[in-house]
Amino acid sequence: MAERFVIQEVFGNEDADPIPQGICIGNVVHASRITGVDPTTGVLAEGIDAQMAAVHQNLRQVVERAGGSIDNVAQVSFFVAQREYLQAINPQWVQLWPNDDDRPTYKFMVAPLPPGVLVQAEFFAVLGARRELIHVAGVAHTNPIPMGVKTGGMVFSSRILPFEPTTGKPPEGFAAQATVVFGNLRTFLANAGAEPRHITQARIFIADKAEMPVMRQHWDQLFAGVSPQPVMHAVTYGAGTALQAYIEIVAVLS
């Protein structure tokens, strides 16, 4: 069979909603703006718990309609309207993926959502491929997610944390956290069998944009000799919290 990319839109319930929920490009399924619309009524569910449950149901429906299953999901991003809503994620998450050793990874962010929308999700899945969980010893999320997932030749990280592998805690100060984050990223890549040149996207989450030159220095060291460098997004996030720098990557092994 000739090599070609398949493109196909994936609908939720196209009788009621003509807007596709996602797209299948080759064997990659990408869905954005999955909301808590109750699949049986077609209207937004009431309250964060019901919307969060519906988001998980809709996510499952989209990947199944694309010809896959929740086994193929690699990474999910949750956007919530208020910080308190984050606690609604995990009960649904572990219900959909009950196995501690076989889950996608996720990230969450507080983001401006349309009125009434309390949570919205995006995900990446790779059809025909099975997840392998990637960890960094000594560095763990408190949430039930691995540090990243490798599937079908692609690697998706969660937000890699600025925790010292020896202590499991963040060091004091931005410069020390930046050093630890990039050290953990190198370990993560090695554990996934990947190299910096495989990274196709990186997002830097930084509490204070003024510290970007420090991150840039680590970045340039990581990608020394790599041309072109991957796309880098720097996002201002987490100001006023103890964790001042994270990095999230997507990589394609080739």
Partner: peptide, 24 residues
Amino acid sequence: MAAPLKQIYEIYPSAPQALLPLGV
């Protein structure tokens, strides 16, 4: 058989506070 995957990334608005991507 799909063509080999070489590149995948999201595209964000230019504002650094923007969290939701424009596309992929």
